[in-house]
Simulated assay, not measured.
Amino acid sequence: MRSAPAALPRWGERTLVMGVVNLTPDSFSDGGCFLAPEAALRQALILQKQGADLLDLGAQSTRPGAVEVGADVELQRLMPSLDLILQAMGGGSAPRLSIDTFHAAVAEAALEAGAHWINDVSGGRRDPAMLPLVAAAGCPYVLMHSRGDSQTMDRMATYGAVVPTVRDELLRATDRALTAGVQVSQILWDPGLGFAKTTAQNLALLRGLPELRSEGFPLLLGPSRKRFIGEVLQEQRPRARLWGTAAVCVAAIASGADVLRVHDVGPIVQTARMADALYRDRLPREPAQATAL
């Protein structure tokens, strides 16, 4: 029998770091690097050694302009790597495994295989079967704010005031999840940096994180190597945006972020530990609606 992963700390004790493992040929910064299961396993083991608390496996690129491949192709890419990683990471010190998908069929297969979290960039919009599945599974569910899809999101970055609008749209998505039977304790919020947001809107969202956290849900942020950091730094190379990513992570922790989803786990683990020492004691011990990890 496969051993359960080690328990994660309670919300508020420290920032959790989620490492990205892209099982795609076309992700914006490392597409094709980990498409083969053996390469994905090597990367997962590296991120584990660097201190990742969670690993987020995704087999569909969600970058602006990406072509959607459908659930069948996503499963063909995901399952061999997931099975290999689960076999290799059976011990109690293994990171939790999150699956980045908006397809219920992919989420169901991954959870049955042994994955632990579902990270849905559509917040339940794209597949009506997703929320009932998550409700039945009882697993942690990252509910992200987004608009449209990869082909249309850049044309949908129109907001009166971005922070209250994102908050209200997350609340409506949360209501849909609760109506489907998802428990409050399962839900994490992700404001969706880079998804239907301009650079100025992403920066405003980061400044407004305390307003989002005041709703009581743990916050997951995914700033890693993103285009808005490149625009601020005038840096076109995604992999050269590490220190901009680190700066965003410090600001996010100071404003109450609970999970950081990043590519460069080692440096961001150090960044998070230092930021925790500086800011964590000033924050509420845990969100008002803490989730079971």
Rank of each mutant, 00 (worst) to 15 (best):
H145N: 04
D127Q: 01
N119M: 09
A39S: 07
G160T: 14
V142S: 14
A44K: 08
D120P: 04
A107Y: 02
F102Y: 15
A40Y: 01
G92A: 13
G58V: 09
D83S: 13
M130N: 02
C33Q: 13
M156Q: 14
I46A: 14
V142P: 12
M79D: 00
T62A: 12
L170S: 01
C139M: 07
A59V: 03
R167V: 10
L57Y: 03
S122K: 14
V67P: 08
D56E: 10
N119Q: 08
A36G: 04
R172W: 12
I46H: 12
L75G: 13
A88S: 14
G91N: 13
E74S: 11
A109W: 00
P164D: 13
D154W: 01
D149K: 07
G91M: 06
L47T: 12
A110H: 00
H116M: 03
E112P: 00
A113T: 06
A110E: 00
A104P: 02
T165F: 06
G51Y: 08
G90P: 07
D120I: 02
E112C: 06
G160Y: 10
F34W: 10
G114D: 00
Q60R: 01
I118E: 02
V163Y: 09
S81W: 05
V106R: 00
L133N: 01
G114L: 03
D56N: 12
A36V: 05
G124E: 04
T152C: 13
D149P: 08
V67H: 11
A94S: 13
A40K: 03
R126V: 00
D83C: 10
G65S: 09
R63C: 10
A44F: 09
Y141N: 04
A104Y: 00
R63P: 05
S146M: 15
Q50D: 15
M79H: 06
G65E: 05
V121C: 09
Q48K: 13
Y159H: 08
D175R: 11
D168I: 04
Y159T: 11
V166N: 07
I46M: 12
D175W: 07
C139D: 06
L41E: 03
H116P: 05
D72N: 12
L111S: 00
Q60E: 13
